[in-house]
Design a protein around this nucleic acid. Structure first.
Lengths: 199, 199
DNA sequence: TGAAAATGCGAGCGACCGCTCGTATTGTTC
DNA sequence: GAACAATACGAGCGGTCGCTCGCATTTTCA
């Protein structure tokens, strides 16, 4: 069902995703109307639907782009290949800092990432992001806590991602000068949990 | 501006709050329409507005009732009076278990408690619950981590409440037989954080 | 160059939202 | 039992939502 796109169309799609990220960041997912997204993109409501079949599709495409950007920027730090022997504090710095930076640089990200109000937990707009995060955290767990049962590893990954999700808005909402302290608390929580897993 | 209520009116108000808790639990705060709440309560839309000036007021009243119920049921476990010398694991059991039980028994609770989408962080419907929780956690911290600066204690309380908020939906969403494991993970996270605070 | 496809527009649709208001009924008060 | 307040109703208001549709314009390509 893919239709042939012209260069202008590809550009428009990117502009729509930019506008959607803006709107999600400022208004939240629910209150960011498709008309508002179209207006921010400088196009008419109808034009938006030339490129995306609906609001969910816009959100999912935006989530995919976030995941791709994240991977492109921080793939090395997150792979967990040479992560096995690393000092835990250094590991946390290497993983958490870029992720926090990405969250602060992309305010629309957390509107899709940190929303626990799942309409039905199925096919949510944030599913791509969730899946990507869970996979990478599991890879790190596999390297750091080798003795863990697969089911326990999956659960621990969910817990770690959830903690990050929950703390990120706290970091983003705090004034500039208190952010280092908030980030330190986030790392402290993650470290405490990871330490108790290895024990 | 308080108007004189008859016994029937007081009963209706309680029924409306019951219906609102139902609707919030099932649909989430935003999608739970006032007409739907009224229908669930077996009354007309207009009647709802005889008792509450709007949807926010319903939510705030429901939050107040949740806080009162929680205090009535678990005041002793949460006070932090004799909490100072207690074993950390026992403390966590005493505080976390009743809170988790309350969350599971009142599905509408987390729709007000665990929603990080704050319209403006001011005067939110969940503010009464947040304030109550923060105060009680700070009291516990005061007893357990006496050397802490007030600003740090406030931050730690926010972190602890946030962790609980984030993990509760995970517990509630998991199948019955896996809940003990999820609750154990929640306690593990809290314990890890609290331990690192005392160090 | 001309037909087809892609892009673009924007009024407005049907549905739902929170909420109002005129009116009827029930309960309280003296 | 008369006067009044409290409770109850439900059609419907003004507004917003996601989205459609008829039609104009631009680009592609044979």
């Amino acid at each position: 069902m893919e239709r042939r796109r012209q260069a202008r169309g590809e550009r428009r799609m990117a502009e729509i995703l930019d506008a959607a990220a803006d709107a999600f960041a400022e208004l939240g997912y629910e209150k960011a109307s498709t008309n508002a997204i179209a207006a921010r993109a400088g196009i008419s409501p109808g034009s938006l639907y030339q490129f995306f079949p609906g609001k969910e599709a816009v959100a999912r495409a935006l989530a995919d782009r976030f995941v791709a950007d994240m991977r492109a920027a921080h793939a090395a730090a997150f792979t967990g290949a040479e992560v096995a022997g690393m000092d835990l504090d250094e590991l946390l710095d290497r993983v958490v800092d870029p992720l926090v930076a990405f969250n602060l640089a992309n305010p629309g990200f957390k509107a899709l990432f940190a929303r626990p109000d799942m309409p039905s937990a199925l096919a949510g707009s944030s599913q791509p992001i969730q899946a990507a995060m869970l996979g990478q955290v599991e890879a790190i767990l596999l390297a750091r806590v080798p003795g863990q049962e697969p089911a326990d590893r999956a659960r621990s990954a969910r817990v770690l991602v959830r903690i990050f999700q929950a703390m990120t808005p706290l970091v983003a909402a705090s004034p500039e000068e208190e952010r280092p302290a908030e980030i330190a608390e986030l790392k402290r929580v993650l470290k405490g949990y990871l330490t108790s897993l290895s024990a």
